[in-house]
Design a protein around this nucleic acid. Sequence first.
DNA 1: ATAATATAACTAATATAATTAGTTTTGTCA
DNA 2: TGACAAAACTAATTATATTAGTTATATTAT
Lengths: 189, 189
Amino acid sequence: MTKNNISYELIIETAARLSNKVGLDHLSLKMIAEELNIKSPSLYNHISSLDDIKEKLMIYGWKQVEEKIIDAAVGVAGYDALKKMCYAFYHYAIHNKGVFTAMLWYNKFESTEKNKATTKLFDMLFKIMSSLNMSDEHIHHAIRTLRSFLEGFALLVNNNAFGNPISIEESFELSLEIIMKGIQSLEEK
Amino acid sequence: MTKNNISYELIIETAARLSNKVGLDHLSLKMIAEELNIKSPSLYNHISSLDDIKEKLMIYGWKQVEEKIIDAAVGVAGYDALKKMCYAFYHYAIHNKGVFTAMLWYNKFESTEKNKATTKLFDMLFKIMSSLNMSDEHIHHAIRTLRSFLEGFALLVNNNAFGNPISIEESFELSLEIIMKGIQSLEEK
DNA sequence: ATAATATAACTAATATAATTAGTTTTGTCA
DNA sequence: TGACAAAACTAATTATATTAGTTATATTAT
């Protein structure tokens, strides 16, 4: 019984890695504990429950993806920026299936930390779209359009839900085109 | 110990009702059994596992929503038909949260029954969109756009994920406008 | 250096749910 | 009316989360 160097952060990172590998629904305390070479009750020295871990996983994911999305928009503006941000989100979601699943639960939990994790992202999106000729209200709605599409598309991809053999990458590209053109049509010329 | 009139169908219907009330993740054999006034092991005379029930719930949902969507498109054509179908899907999803959650798992299970449940729907969508001036490939992609948006939007609504106080109904309406306009822009004039 | 203390590990126990095994009841049909 | 299959039951098994209580370890103050 040596004191292992286990921290809250390490547990969340481990949970993230494991859930990406086996799926969030198969993540268990037992599995996390084994990966860390401790017994599962020992985890309670750091966390309060499995649900606690899942909530933190959700926040962890939004923080990570926020960073990647913001990075993606550096040096570009307008629709180009939006498009790059969408791709950043999509790639994160399909390369981190477990964490992404947790992110989809978003408001199943209420927390300020959760809000903090995405404020910057929303602000940035809003600022970028403010350069378009569109009312603030329309911007808010359009952000919801985009977000819904992105989360839905990634969910379907992760679940193998697209039966057709046609290219998923092309679907994503064309979908962005459709939505961007649609947003453009809202602009007051 | 009287023989209750329990059938496979009754179990699925009960599971649907209960999951809509308490959420799919809180659905348990215990709960279903209690609702039917039997003990949970007795369920195994009709079903093979809890996962079995969830898979059938998914199929049940797609069958129901297929019917509603098809009904919604009677007597209308083109974009109007598409829009009505989208609304039918959306309303089903937010009024049947538990079943809808199961539907999102779509391809977590492989089955021919699952395919049968949506063939008519896809065929109909395809036929409607064939009246637009668009290649078959673009139609397939656009259907994915629409489906992703719809499933994503409903998921977010069901999870209370839209923090802003602005109207969700208006977001849905405007989103459809955005996507329809975007699809229109693909048409070869 | 060492004793005191807090931390973090452990084992053992508890609770709940799914599932399986084996038994009994009940309705149907020859 | 008796035999049989279906469907209920109870009891037992397994697995996991969680709690309780105990022990070892590391740090920190003397």
